[in-house]
Amino acid sequence: MTTSTTVIETNDTIAKRWRRATEEPAWLRIVLITLALAFVALFLVLPLSVVLYGAFERGISVWYEAIRDPDAMSAIRLTLLIVAIVVPLNTLFGIAAAWAIAKFEFRGKPILISLIDMPFAISPVVVGLIFVILFGSQGWLGPWLLANDMRIIFAVPGIVIVIAFGTLPFIARELIPLMQQQGKEEEEASLTLGANGWKTFWYVTLPNIKWGLIYGVILCNARAMGEFGAVAVVSGRIRGETNTMPLHIEVLYNEYMFTAAFAVSSLLTGLALVTIAIKSVVEWQEEHRQRLAAV
């Protein structure tokens, strides 16, 4: 009896010391959580509340009317179409670029990374200007496009290009630090064991970069939906045709239809729900797989 108690006590102290070395004390946790939550409240929850309050201030039926408006519907459709084109393209680019940067050594790597970052640093206003200079009828390719009756700016292709430009870095930038941190030993092992490149990618690399990829896609998606400044320059703002959701929101706001403007904005905040859903599904799958593995 006595011996066993001593053993337990010793285990206890060991456990305590262990916990001290691998975890933060409870008070510190609480302080950190509080600080983080205060920041979240100030910068995320409050602005969101403004939007939701504005959207539902006059009841759900007014909100629904605003969404069902034909111009709003066409803006929503256009935005979804653009996302459907841009996000897959940038995902492929992101994986390929991150792969090249993280797994190979070559000179000028910081330069390539910095170039990839650039679209973030270029003001949306300038992005619009760039494409007007390139494709506008006073621009370099404009007269040729006009002669061949092709439209890039003031039509959907122009909007797709500026959004692809603006969201280019997201996925690559999410994956690069992750892949760098992981190194390439696992892939090399897989290759040594005879798997081909594609298999290695699918079974080794992809599961490893899963979280970065998910965050990257979510961010890219969010930004593609919300982009305003550059789109405003190249869209031509034709009602029901080239107005994306953010442009339509501006239209409504300028028409003093504040409730409708916030209503359409509230749809964009619904994206947060998509984030929750995706993460939950992936987590659930992971647990499922682990359980299978345990059996």
């Binding site: 070559f106 090399e188 490149g197």
Partner: peptide, 11 residues
């Protein structure tokens, strides 16, 4: 840009 191809069959 000079790329080392030592891992080119990687992928």
């Amino acid at each position: 840009m000079q790329i080392s191809f030592s891992h080119s069959k990687l992928f």
